[in-house]
Computed example of a mutant assay.
Amino acid sequence: NALLLLAGACGFLCTLYRDRSVAPWSLAVLWSAAFVLLKLFFYRRFFLHFDFFLLPFAAYGVVLLWKRSSHVFWHVLLVLLILGQSYLSYNVFLLRTPDIDEGMFAIVESVESADLPADAFVVTLENKSTTWLRGWLPNHRVAGPGLFSYTWPFQDWELFLYGLEGPVYLLLTPLFFEYYGEFAQKFVEDPCFQRLENTSLLKVTCT
C-alpha cells in the first residue's frame, strides 16, 4: 500500500490547498488516520477505512503527477509502480481466504431452508459462524459468542437459554465439536434439546 499512501497523501494535500476547506470525505481521512496513528480503540480495524477513504485522493494524486511530469521517464516509472503495486495486491488477495470453509458455510446456508418461525432466536455455539449466520438470516434474531465474554455460572446460562422469548435454536458446527471435544457431545445429548432432522439445529424444548 506504499503507492496508495504516497499518492493519497499527495492528492489529499493538493485537494486541501485547492479547495481551502475540509470536505466531509477529507474529514473521514483525518478521522481514520487519527485512530491509526494514535492507536485508539480497535485501531487496526481503521486501516481498511483509511485505505478506502484515501482511494479518490490517490487517483487525484496520480493524475497530478502524470500531468506535472512531462518527461517519459517519470511516466514509465509511474506505470511500473502501479503495475508493481497491482502485482503485490494480487498476491495478497490470493493468500486471503474466508474464516470459514465451504462445509461450515453450507451449514449456515442450510438454516435458511429449515423454515424457522418468524420469531425464532438462533444461537451459534462458536465465534466463526455468528456473523455469517447474521447476514444469512436478516429477518431472524441471531446471537452467539463474540468480542466480549461473560463468566456466567451455569444457572445464568440456563436462564439465558430457557428464558428467551420465542422458540430458541442452537446451531451445531464442526468447529463446535472440535473445540469442546467430548463435552460437546454431552451438551448435545441434554434432554432439553431436540435435534431437527436433516439440519444442524437443536431446538430448546425446556422453558
Rank of each mutant, 00 (worst) to 15 (best):
L125V: 05
Q155K: 13
R96I: 15
L94H: 13
S86K: 01
Y60W: 14
P56Y: 09
S149T: 12
V92Y: 11
T130A: 04
H71G: 08
L77F: 13
A118R: 13
L116Q: 04
L81P: 00
L133V: 07
L94N: 13
H75A: 09
S70H: 11
F52G: 04
L55T: 15
L64H: 06
T151P: 00
L95Y: 01
D99F: 01
H71L: 10
P56W: 05
E126C: 02
S89T: 15
P138E: 06
F154K: 12
G135H: 08
E126H: 12
K67N: 11
D119L: 03
E109S: 14
A114L: 05
H140Y: 10
V142Q: 01
A114I: 03
S113W: 03
G84H: 07
F73C: 03
D115M: 08
E158W: 04
D115W: 02
L125K: 06
L116C: 07
V111R: 00
A58I: 05
D119Q: 14
N91M: 07
A106T: 10
S89M: 10
F53E: 03
F148T: 12
A118G: 06
S113D: 14
L54D: 07
E158K: 10
H71P: 01
V123W: 05
L125R: 04
P56T: 12
T151C: 02
W157Q: 11
S89E: 12
L147T: 13
L77C: 14
Y87P: 00
L55W: 14
V123G: 00
W132N: 02
L54K: 02
Q85F: 11
G146F: 07
S89P: 00
A59R: 01
L54V: 02
G84C: 09
F105E: 14
F121A: 04
P98H: 08
I100V: 15
R68Q: 14
H140I: 09
F73W: 11
W74D: 04
A143K: 07
T124C: 12
Y150T: 10
P138Y: 07
T124Y: 11
P138Q: 07
V72H: 08
K67L: 14
S149W: 08
T124Q: 09
